[in-house]
């Protein structure tokens, strides 16, 4: 039962990583850049939903929606102002800009909300938990919502990418920007859309993360951000199912190492597993080796 309860917790944490990893992997796949500010958008999402609920007294669902809208706009603005002018620049320049953007967001949050941690209200996801096996296995409402949200997001996103015109346009841009443009697809608009989706997902991840681990501050996004990035690489960066698998595995490995091996070593173990996977399969678990046919 101890194992089962840890497994459920791992799934829940893994679901959060998976939702964040989606943002990394989509932006990487389509814009070919690593958006290291993505983790901090999570933090912004947490603060916006917190303010909406706590200070402005909005209902929970509206608070979450407000966070999503805010982060969507933020993501599009970040892409348009910071990354778009660098579309032709070297990837190193873009990477450094992304790191700079990450610090900018953290420091803006510090300026506005100060550095002391806040307590995330449990009422935002006010779902009662359930208990199974005569009370031996308790699953909290947040855990249930998190796992469910992950499944719903995955299904919707997969349908969107594979079935809709805009989703197909995203796949085209991801494969061949020049050819996509020749089809009449606006590359800039497609990349904006990718940032919009990724950032909306980051807002959801922020709400879920802070509901599960309620103490948060302006640095809250960075560690989960890095772990989710790891998850994306682990699963094969650029691949949506890869982000899902990578995120879930990473969450489960982290929680199980914490439970059975050592709390201090848990992060080290997570990253060691990543290194081993990359040694064996450099493109990640589900990553594809792209071969060019000449």
């Amino acid at each position: 039962m101890f194992f089962l309860s840890n497994l459920v917790n791992g799934l829940s944490l893994g679901s959060i990583y998976a939702i964040i990893a989606l943002g990394y992997t989509m932006v990487y796949g389509i814009a070919k850049m690593l958006n290291f500010a993505h983790g901090d958008v999570i933090m912004v999402g947490a603060y916006v939903s917190f303010c909406a609920f706590q200070y402005w007294g909005l209902p929970p669902v509206v608070s979450i929606l407000a966070a999503m809208v805010f982060c969507t706009v933020l993501g599009v603005v970040i892409e348009g102002t910071a990354y778009r002018p660098l579309r032709q620049a070297t990837s190193l320049a873009v990477l450094i800009t992304a790191i700079g953007m990450s610090y900018l967001l953290q420091n803006l949050a510090l300026l506005i909300f100060k550095s002391d941690p806040k307590n995330y209200p449990a009422q935002i996801i006010g779902m009662p938990g359930i208990s199974l096996f005569g009370g031996q296995l308790k699953i909290s409402g947040v855990t249930l919502v998190t796992i469910l949200a992950n499944v719903v997001i995955m299904v919707l996103l997969t349908l969107f990418i594979n079935r809709t015109k805009l989703g197909k346009a995203m796949r085209c841009v991801s494969e061949d920007r020049g050819a996509a443009e020749l089809m009449g697809i606006s590359v800039n608009r497609t990349i904006s859309l990718t940032f919009a989706i990724g950032s909306a997902l980051a807002a959801i991840a922020g709400v879920l993360l802070c509901s599960a681990y309620p103490i948060f501050d302006p640095y809250t996004g960075s560690m989960p951000g890095i772990k989710a990035f790891t998850a994306a690489v682990f699963g094969g960066i650029g691949s949506i199912p890869g982000a899902m698998v990578g995120g879930l595995l990473l969450g489960i490995i982290e929680i199980l190492s914490r439970a059975y091996i050592s709390t201090q070593l848990a992060d080290a173990i997570v990253f060691a597993v990543l290194i081993v996977v990359l040694l064996v399969k450099p493109t990640g678990l589900l990553g594809k080796q792209i071969r060019e046919k000449v």
């Binding site: 050819a179 996509a180 020749l182 089809m183 606006s186 000449v294």
Partner: peptide, 24 residues
């Protein structure tokens, strides 16, 4: 005028090296 707007004006280019979408 950007390349993405040329198609609707009636210009279509088959690029060198085919450039089909390999995964579609």
């Amino acid at each position: 005028i950007s390349a993405s707007k040329m198609v609707s004006r009636g210009l279509s280019l088959c690029p060198e090296g085919r450039r089909i979408f390999q995964q579609m």
